[in-house]
Each structure stands twice: as structure tokens, then as C-alpha cells.
Amino acid sequence: MTSRTLYLFGSAAPPVFQVAEVIERAQADGWDVCLGLTPTAAQWLDESLDGLADLTGHPVRSEYKLPSEADVWPKADVILFAPATFNSLNSWALGLTSAFVVGVVAEGIGKGIPTVAMPCVNAAYASHRALDRSVTELREQGITVLYGEGGFEPNPPGSGSPKGYPWDVALEAAKQKADKA
């Protein structure tokens, strides 16, 4: 059986600290996983980056490659962007691609790469109108955004539990999206 490739992207939100467990679960389901992080998420996981690269068998990326450099990842069958922060979601919806992972998902829309996003925002961020506009914009462009009932639901600031982040929902949605492609 040929494995499919999952690009797992994460922003700097507490559930990113569970990424090794998520990679192992995805691999157990037959995925070849490539891990991409926002620069801040990479900074948070700095001491784990070599181990995460060993776990996936691919370099962990948080920056754009130079035009002269070869692409070191296989082609994605699906992208899962989780946790996706307020900043990442709004940047993506607006097409502001200074962060590598945001650039890949923005370009992925035009390339037709099946993509799932699951936010991780607290209720204070969720009350900002920009979030709803961004979620709507991304959904209108074919992105599955797992936000609200059946996906991620915001908690009051400071009360969230990274252990309560619905990773199973995100992984299942990515699998379903890839199966339909």
C-alpha cells in the first residue's frame, strides 16, 4: 500500500505541544507526515525539532526555501492546519503570506490541494469580527474549517485545555477530505 502524504501545519497555540502524538496517530493510520510550523510555533518547539524531523523522516519547515533549493517534501495529498491561530487564519484569508505555512495553504487553494483547518482561539479573539469574516472567506474557497459545533469551540481567555483540543475530529476530517479528492 502506498502511503498518502499529510502536511500537518501548526501555529503557536498550546495544542501544538501535542504534535508528536498527532504525528504518531496519523502515521498509524498510514500517513506520511510532513510538519510545518509558523516561526513562533517553531520557536516554542525548538528543543523538539530534531526529534520531530526524525519522527516524520522529513525536515520540519518554518521558513521558505531559497529558489535554488530543491523541494524536500513529497507532494501533499491533504493539508491539515491545526492549531490555526487568529493571526494565521486572518493572514490566510487575506492572502498575507509572510509565514511559510500560510503561504503554502494560500497557494494550495489555487492548486486544488484538499485542506482542513481547525482554529485554536479564545473567546476574546473569537468576538472580533475579523475571525468570522476569515472563516467565511476560507469556507467559500473550499477549505473545511472545523470551527463551531462539531469542531473547535472557543474557551474564555486563559481557561483552555490543550488536552481538550479535538485532534481526532481534525484527523478524521483530513482523511475524509483526501478520500474525496
Rank of each mutant, 00 (worst) to 15 (best):
A76L: 12
A76K: 15
A76W: 11
V78K: 14
V78Q: 14
V78S: 14
V78L: 11
I79Y: 09
I79R: 09
L80A: 12
F81V: 14
A82K: 08
P83G: 11
P83F: 06
P83L: 11
A84K: 08
A84S: 14
A84E: 09
T85M: 05
F86S: 03
N87F: 03
S88R: 03
N90T: 15
N90L: 09
W92E: 08
A93Y: 05
A93H: 05
A93I: 05
A93R: 10
L94Q: 14
G95A: 11
L96E: 10
L96F: 09
T97N: 07
T97G: 01
S98L: 09
S98W: 08
S98G: 12
S98T: 15
A99P: 07
F100H: 13
F100Y: 15
V101K: 02
V102A: 08
V102Q: 06
G103T: 11
V104F: 01
V104Y: 03
V105I: 14
A106R: 10
A106Q: 08
E107T: 13
G108P: 00
G108D: 06
I109V: 15
I109A: 06
G110I: 10
K111M: 14
K111C: 07
G112H: 03
P114E: 10
P114Y: 07
P114K: 02
T115G: 07
T115S: 14
V116C: 03
A117L: 09
A117M: 13
A117E: 05
M118P: 06
M118D: 05
M118K: 01
P119S: 04
P119D: 09
C120S: 12
C120H: 06
V121S: 01
V121D: 01
N122L: 04
N122M: 07
N122Q: 08
N122I: 06
Y125H: 14
A126R: 00
A126S: 03
H128I: 07
H128W: 01
H128D: 11
A130L: 00
A130M: 04
A130Y: 03
L131H: 00
L131D: 03
D132M: 04
R133D: 09
R133E: 13
R133F: 04
R133S: 13
R133N: 11
V135Q: 01
V135Y: 01
T136I: 09
T136P: 02
L138D: 01
